[in-house]
Design a protein around this nucleic acid. Structure first.
Lengths: 196, 196, 196, 196
DNA sequence: AATGAATGAGGATTCATTCAT
DNA sequence: GATGAATGAATCCTCATTCAT
């Protein structure tokens, strides 16, 4: 057992427990950015640094990489559900929000549909639950007789669009996402973060 | 100086230059399998082991991970081009071959279209060349007035299909690939490795 | 995936495969010393450094801490068995060797008898096998009617002696070991590493 | 400056100074259990949690791990002294109590005799004082001419017995302790926590 | 030309300790 | 006086890469 002490070395501010919620949120934001920029394998230390917290805080809030990734997806889904809940929202409107998230979280939104090779099954498990929540949101706004109404076509189309979303810049990714929807003959509303 | 080496230390046979080509091929095969099973981040040592060669041989043939990944894609492309060269091949036939490779190399075929964030730009650079070769092959068999004839639609569609290819088993992945093509209204021939 | 390269930075000598056996032995020696001085929880990096090898070498030879500890015990047992095999060796002689190892590996020889709380069960499992080998060695030299001949008394006595072996210096530990045997009324020969 | 604190953030009751003594006692009990179950290296946070207090409280009462371990031993010694103080107590009676503690605190009672390598010298220092108190207690009840009367034999025997106390269950440990005393030819009374 | 051991940097993870509330 | 979140150093462990043989 080695003691880690060095009791006098100045210590950065400790904002106390009040910071907890703020830190968690900062971590989710940082994770979205870092995962998006550096891939799902990005060093967790990079995320902690970007969030302005110590490594320990990251681990306190998220026991592992999967929990962090899941939290980002969870946040995406929450916003999609909010958009869906808006009075009079159409499928077109909701797809705009979904597309925004696909574009923004490009690097790993695909996980929501992936369940295959490559380990990471912890993420996948929860992702499939999230996927169902997205499907429920979309299906609730799907007009009768819509061309994506049959079988799995709705989520398959979403997987196709997110799969096609690549490119170095946000603009390029959005361009590709819209082109993909067009190819599927599906109308998409303005690409927004949420509600509206 | 003291003689340390004793001539009996067994050492695997050195088959001379003949082995070189065989080793290279074994590495590409092993890489396809390992990347597919364990993701693009799989340890290179795992690939060397699976190929039955030492680590050094891997480095002799492929200076870095990207070169290896590229070699796998290169091989895919070569087979697609062969299929295209067959007298009387239709777009439908060629798409069957393309789809086979998409299904088989699911884990990283997406790289062919990706050029964005996430490092690995070495792979991306060459991948884009390969992508163009695939496009040339397909476009040569594209009937006038085909719905994917305009702009980037052809490669976008391919990106969409490969993006939708997920799932733990080969069968599931093939099912999804075919469903994706169907949703795009494109006919696909039998899903084969190459020509025929 | 992050590359760890820095291909020019001078690299310490690599003596090649020939060093493998030497390294393994150096690690066992270093482990005995370090475990003995700093306890079973000593940083493995300290052992690697003391052995003059990189961390990776340690892990190549011993996948985990338990394997290393076991290797030290294994070596102890081997020497005890050698001492037993000497023509005409008496219990008294063998106990001298056993005592030497108890004194030398004080910090963790106790593991050979411990099987209780505190995790580390990987070590314990193998240790119990080693313990049996020691018992077999001793029992083979146990005169009929010896006071430790009944039941578990032989190994219990050994546990008692090793349990009593404490102290900062080798001399102090040997003094205590001999005092403990005396208290048990058992004669012990000269305290030697092995054979004779 | 903006008011961040909202008065509704629930905060566990602060029972005032009265709680201090209760907390200290709870910590000692928790420490005995945790050290016993998880070893002397168990995380301090685990002890605080088991005691039902915050980490800070642990540090208020015990500045470091050693202080906590010492407190547990101190408590053991106090009980042994109480047992000794009983009118008419014999060595046999007192050894019963001593044995109970040896069995109960198996994991670290050995510290009382250890003073050697392996750091933790803070604990050792105080432990040696405690060791002397135990010795005084026992010696006061040692009949003239007892076989453990000479030199250090009394404490050596105790070290031997505690060193032999291993095993996963309390029963197994007690069995071994009694067998060890028997092997030393020393009679031991009923194994009890304290006095009587 | 091949083998596979060695190096060591980098990322993951755990706790001891402090401190705002 | 108590709580428990935050910090960050230390340790673990894994490979990419080199190189003696």
């Amino acid at each position: 057992m080695i003691q880690h002490s060095s009791p006098d070395e100045r210590r950065p501010a400790n904002d106390g427990p009040k910071a907890a919620a703020r830190n968690r949120a900062a971590l989710v934001v940082a994770a979205r950015e870092v995962f998006s920029a550096a891939g799902l394998d990005a060093p967790l230390s990079m995320i902690a640094r970007r969030a302005g917290v110590g490594q320990g805080v990251l681990y306190r809030h998220f026991p592992d990489r999967g929990a962090l990734a899941t939290a980002v997806l969870e946040e995406n889904v929450r916003q999609i559900e909010e958009a869906t809940a808006v009075e009079g929202a159409t499928l077109t409107d909701v797809l705009g929000v979904v597309t925004w998230h696909a574009v923004e979280s490009a690097a790993f939104i695909g996980l929501m549909h992936a369940d295959g090779a490559g380990g990471r099954s912890g993420i996948r498990a929860h992702a499939s639950v999230l996927s169902e929540r997205v499907e429920r949101s979309l299906r609730g706004r799907l007009p009768a007789g819509h061309r994506l109404g049959a079988g799995d076509d709705l989520m398959l189309a979403l997987a196709m669009v997110t799969g096609a979303v690549t490119g170095p810049t946000r603009e390029e990714r959005e361009r590709r996402a819209l082109a993909a929807w067009r190819l599927l003959g599906v109308e998409v509303g303005p690409v927004h973060p949420y509600g509206g």
